[in-house]
């Protein structure tokens, strides 16, 4: 099987899995969900690392890759942190109060 064919199968399965999982997410958490998936899609940092890190990369490649690593890192860091910050606020009962 060609590599891209394999990739298309992976894509299809992941997309269906995504649909099934996200349909079950409570509407309460739609905002944190969005910031979480945003952080996850910052996995493009992997591609960016490969671009900057190559031995014989040209200046153009290196500059573009550098900006890409920077942008993706911002998303990874702030995405996970703000998701956690939001989730911490969802409490069932107020502790300490009756």
């Amino acid at each position: 099987m060609k590599s891209y064919e394999f990739g298309l199968y992976v894509f299809m399965l992941a997309a269906f899995l995504g649909f099934e999982l996200i349909r079950r997410v409570s509407p309460l958490l739609h905002t944190p969900l969005m910031s979480l998936t945003n952080a996850i899609s910052a996995i493009s940092v992997v591609g960016a690392i490969l671009t900057v890190g190559e031995k014989d990369a040209s200046t153009l490649t290196r500059v573009l890759g550098f900006i890409a690593v920077l942008a993706a890192t911002i998303n990874v860091v702030s995405g996970y942190l703000i998701t956690d910050r939001m989730l911490k606020m969802f409490k069932k009962r107020e502790p300490g109060k009756k």
Partner: peptide, 24 residues
């Protein structure tokens, strides 16, 4: 990008994010 770089992890993460946004 996952397809362009032949990286399955990117394909999966992107598909999850893509379907999430679409459902919302």
């Amino acid at each position: 990008m996952g397809f362009a770089l032949d990286n399955k992890l990117l394909i999966i993460a992107g598909a999850l994010d893509g379907s999430s946004g679409l459902i919302l």
